[in-house]
Design a protein around this nucleic acid. Sequence first.
DNA 1: TCATGAACGTGAACACCGTTAACTATCGAC
DNA 2: GTCGATAGTTAACGGTGTTCACGTTCATGA
Lengths: 257, 257
Amino acid sequence: MEPVTPKPPNRRERVRNATVAEIKAVARRQLTADGPLAISLRAIARDMGMSAPALYRYFPSLEALLVALCVDLYDELRAFMETACDELAEDDHIGRVLVAARSFRSWAVSHRPEFTLMFASVDLHHNTDSHLDPTAEPHAAATRFSQVFGRIFGELYRQTDEERGFPLPLPTVPPMSAELQGELMACSQTIGADVPMEFAYIFLTYWIRLYGVVAMEVYGQLPVVNHPDLLFNAMLAEMAAQLQVDITRWITPPTVG
Amino acid sequence: MEPVTPKPPNRRERVRNATVAEIKAVARRQLTADGPLAISLRAIARDMGMSAPALYRYFPSLEALLVALCVDLYDELRAFMETACDELAEDDHIGRVLVAARSFRSWAVSHRPEFTLMFASVDLHHNTDSHLDPTAEPHAAATRFSQVFGRIFGELYRQTDEERGFPLPLPTVPPMSAELQGELMACSQTIGADVPMEFAYIFLTYWIRLYGVVAMEVYGQLPVVNHPDLLFNAMLAEMAAQLQVDITRWITPPTVG
DNA sequence: TCATGAACGTGAACACCGTTAACTATCGAC
DNA sequence: GTCGATAGTTAACGGTGTTCACGTTCATGA
């Protein structure tokens, strides 16, 4: 867990990294061109003018290559969302929620094969036991990504917390068992240290709604809806309005409400 | 479009149907045992003591076999949800929403490979152009399935409509463009003839939330939540409460509210 | 400077896969 | 009883991931 080992890479390591990058780039080209199933080790090798077994010097298996590609895609999506949010004013947290959601959808619908590979390849994330190891790169990348929304919600909470200056009336949520409260406490830890579990709950429900509508659109599970973007915008507007209501409820002194 | 052609099947057709059923049964066994990718034509043939090309007398391709399997699974899931709902009183429509949602989730988590095949195999539903043809079986099965929830919501609306006896105050929804209203009208047609578009909208948002939380659980996209059933129950309770509020708002005379 | 060992790349081979073609046996209907 | 549709076979093609045994290249330590 040292901070960073600068260790200027040897020439050897540089060209190796370049080769790894090229492999992933070619794989990605196949992914976008013909879908997740079309990624083939041999085809990658062909495109690179190499023999197929040579790739095993860089990845222990095709599955490992796909996982590495997924890691890159997670980071790409995360960066896309974060730069989109950077356009906004520092304190426009609801704007951030909207922009993050919109950029998530727009990336997803313009990168359907990538989205499919990332969010619907069960075998990838679970056959390898890497998901059990929190230090593994795939798990770390997924966490980094999920924390994009988490951070936004956390800052949103902390801002209202500062503006408030009195104990807050938490959003009304359904009664929760002790176990669920424990789950939510764990979840709120990933958002930020001091957010209450009620906030973790509404964060989860927002994220689930966003994932649901985008995944259904990408997977073609909304057959009757011809223009999913309209539905998406309506849902997002509703979610934002609801969030706004919750927040004004929070920052209104409890004696009034 | 004749009502039904009884046409007592020849002996020939009977054994053929039995073979088709056996093929799908063996495929399903492979699916549940080793996941969607493990379904292999040759392995099916091996298990049945046949040669692989023989299967082409029954299905024009592996993909067609998988589509047929999906059709069966859609109907199985639909039947599972409907029999679960049959336990309830005729007029307990909110109960039906809850039971349908709960049985949807319980089928999904206890049939993860099947769920994956049905809801996340992009290539299946879109590479074949069968999804363009509304008369094709895959499309019909998916429609039959999606109408389970649609019917429940439609009956829910019609019941409140009868109890009401006056023009109804519709649920508050975000302002909608004319295009979105058109989309929702089309969607409400699948629910039932006379449901207003606002109802179609909340139906869609409910279905999206349900799909989102279940899909995230099945695809392992809720890493921090150790007991997704608790989260699911909380969300469902919240959705039901919200639905209850909407309904009491509807069946309360507008002069009061 | 040169030897050494790791890293890199190769071709051959194995065991699968979906699919097609050519051919044969069986069974139902006229 | 014949004949054609049906159901099955084997052989083969081209594709896949992966392993093995073998060279080649190259940075490094003596």
